[in-house]
Amino acid sequence: MEGLVATGLIGISLGAQYALLALGFTLIFGILGVVNFAHGGFYVLGGYIAYATTTHLGAPYPVAVVIAALGTAGLGYVFERFLLERLVDDHLATLMLTLGLYLMMSSGILVVFGPESPSFEFPITGVLRGGGFYFPLQNLIVLAVCIVAIVTLYWLVYHTDFGRALRALADDRAVAAAQGLRPKLLFPLAFALATGLAGLTGALVTPILSLAPHIGDPVLATSFLIVILGGLGSVGGATVAAFIVGLIEAYSAVYLGGSKGALALFTLVLLMLVIRPSGLFGREARGA
């Protein structure tokens, strides 16, 4: 019983990290209809901005996390406003643009910081222990930030004029634009929000795990898996799917082993997609 609960706690920790990663990814698809292949790059960049801010500028870690979120949001805004927006309806072009941006980001980081992982520590290192369980405090902080991020995002998307405008543009851009909504202003803001979330996640998670120029690849793969399972573009679906994936990964890896666990995860996701091809909470197709 203790083992089941302890594994469940690990699954929840994994789910919180995955949810933070997947929210930005699914938001961009849901609003813009763009699959952002640079998402992992923004995660890595967020980590490196936080690392450089604490190590080279001597700023406190919380300040570094805020700077990382703002920095990646700023880059995302500029990228969407001046590059992506011109070709936003051409899916192949946006795919190539975001992939190109990812390659530029990872190569740039490699040139500036080198290929090896730097020493980047989370400032809080304690572990809560008791009754056969353990829960690192840093995971608790990530979980708290995840909950705040999910609630804030829901509020933004579903209870503000900004969110209503974004959803209207996502449903039918032409009609929404005819009614005075401005995609050239709102889309970059949505993109910045999503990339800022990726940067925030990178700043929070990389000191807990590790920071290196290449770590965006598995991040992108995991985000993709989660948003497909949750339903492309569904914020709620991504959140639920993130925790499902986290829990399946934890239980299967603990009780079946690393290799069989990965196989079990992908098999379950595949089965779920056979039953519901549009994902758990996905619609058949985007309106715009």
């Binding site: 083992g3 302890a6 594994t7 690990i10 699954g11 920790s13 994994l14 990290q17 795990l209 590790s210 770590i215 690849d217 598995p218 991040v219 793969a221 995991t222 990964e249 934890a250 239980y251 299967s252 890896a253 603990v254 009780y255 082993g257 690393g258 290799s259 666990g261 990965a262």
Partner: peptide
Amino acid sequence: EEYYQRGTTNFAPIVTRIMN
């Protein structure tokens, strides 16, 4: 022997299996 999928970023489940 214990094996994990290359590309794994968070090893907490593998670590729990080892600890068991």
